[in-house]
């Protein structure tokens, strides 16, 4: 197992909603790091991820 696979295996050990957020944030950060020196607008995108996952959880709970 290389180190990138090891890192992803750490994500797999997380609670599903946290795993979803952390994986997406990591992927987003990696894309931003590849494309831009200054990650402008990344906070809004991370917030959108959290809002989406959290709201979906609440909706599931209400159902």
């Amino acid at each position: 197992m290389n180190l990138q696979e090891l890192l992803l295996s750490y994500f797999n050990d997380l609670e599903p909603d946290v795993q979803e957020v952390v994986s997406e944030v990591y992927s987003l950060e990696r894309n931003y790091s590849d494309f831009y020196d200054h990650p402008k607008g990344i906070l809004i995108k991370i917030k959108n991820i959290i809002d989406r996952v959290s709201d979906f959880n609440l909706m599931k709970r209400d159902l």
């Binding site: 946290v18 959290i50 996952v53 959290s54």
Partner: peptide, 8 residues
């Protein structure tokens, strides 16, 4: 949302 952010 805040709790999920914090947990993450």
């Amino acid at each position: 949302r805040e709790k999920l952010a914090n947990k993450s």
